[in-house]
Design a binder for these strands. Structure first.
Lengths: 203, 203
DNA sequence: ACATTAATGACACTCAAGGTCAAAAAGATA
DNA sequence: TATCTTTTTGACCTTGAGTGTCATTAATGT
């Protein structure tokens, strides 16, 4: 479930007053405060003050406080689509999806904030856990679209929807375990949850 | 994912000022407003006015506006635990869990508001979709506990967590399809998603 | 210089959530 | 009957998120 670091915000035109901040600046300042004071205890005013910008400016860059920790998640979904599209068509469906999820979660380790820190914050803060379902829906939809294409169906058919939901279930379980164990490998955990599932349904 | 209608609130003592309302009264008045005006457009003041009670009283009965549509969900989880415990031990694990989920979702149809209306509201309102993850976590935990017991493990081991998440995934997919099709049978859909999963992982 | 453009900052408003405390309304007791 | 005790309510207040409005600022273009 990687998220891109927010890119330097490009001006829509060269005219006009220059932007006072960027998505990335807000995200990083906010993240520092979230980690030190806690998410709930950090107000939008705090974040604004940290980067010398008004609260109203923050809310123009991000639709809600809950959206800040996810950064520019939506952009990475296009990459996910690409990955799935490039899977060999002769691969069994579950194998293709599984490899797609693995590839999607194989990302550079130099992000800021680190992927692990980001996911720890998201998965351990109730308000963010809740808000994240809305992001997960788009992620599931990418899988559902791929499954629909491979099975000559529509994305909202029962099979694609099931696979989307189940794939998310496996990913979330793996992430949870990854965060709980400092030495764990995320790819190994994704393999493990999939293996557990296979023995479970065919025992 | 049935929820109990809120029971008539029992006074903790016979002394003291009598309660001006009940959980059930709030829930039903709120539900009417949610369905007619929409969830977001209904304020706590509106609900209070509808039953002749202050806004502050509403927030004493329910911890948040988001919690009202779920009613007394937590109570039904004890029933779920019971159901799973009573499953024959010689049944294959996935069979036992599946039958447990089926039994949990086989409930009387005379609830108010109806189970279908309630789930439609919850699953089609973004704020409620998000808030519901916190409820789902307890539901998953019931399954994880059962799986842990049957496999001589702990509830937070990888297998029980995986099965909990996957079972929720199947249930949610089934509910989504149930709401989309007026004539659909929820038990049939639960069977169908499970069947899809089995063919998926062993193809 | 002056017009144009685009973002910011100040201000106002609504609503959810939650803290505090006096008042209300019942039973219990003398 | 009058008073005490208990419990809930309702009024009031504060904080913070989210959103609309509009003048101001700071750049480019003419």
């Amino acid at each position: 479930m990687p998220t891109s670091p927010a890119p330097a915000t490009r001006r829509s035109s060269l005219r006009g007053r220059p932007a006072a901040t960027t998505h990335a600046e807000i995200e990083q300042a906010a993240f520092r405060l979230f980690v030190t004071r806690g998410f709930e205890a950090t107000t939008l005013d705090d974040i604004g003050e940290a980067i010398g910008v008004g609260r109203r400016t923050i809310t123009r860059y991000y639709p809600s406080k809950n959206d800040i920790p996810w950064g520019q998640f939506d952009r990475t979904l296009d990459g996910f689509r690409e990955i799935l599209r490039s899977m060999p068509a002769d691969l069994p469906l579950h194998e293709a999806v599984h490899r797609g999820v693995l590839a999607f979660n194989d990302f550079p380790t130099d992000a800021s904030p680190s992927h692990r820190d980001r996911m720890r914050l998201i998965l351990s803060t109730p308000a963010l856990q809740a808000h994240s379902v809305l992001r997960y829906a788009s992620w599931r939809e990418v899988i559902a679209e791929y499954v629909a294409e491979r099975t000559d169906g529509r994305p909202d058919d029962l099979l694609p929807q099931t696979i989307g939901q189940v794939s998310l279930a496996l990913a979330l379980t793996s992430y949870q375990a990854w965060l709980a164990d400092e030495d764990a490998s995320l790819p190994d955990l994704l393999d493990a949850t999939m293996a557990h599932l296979r023995t479970y349904v065919s025992s």
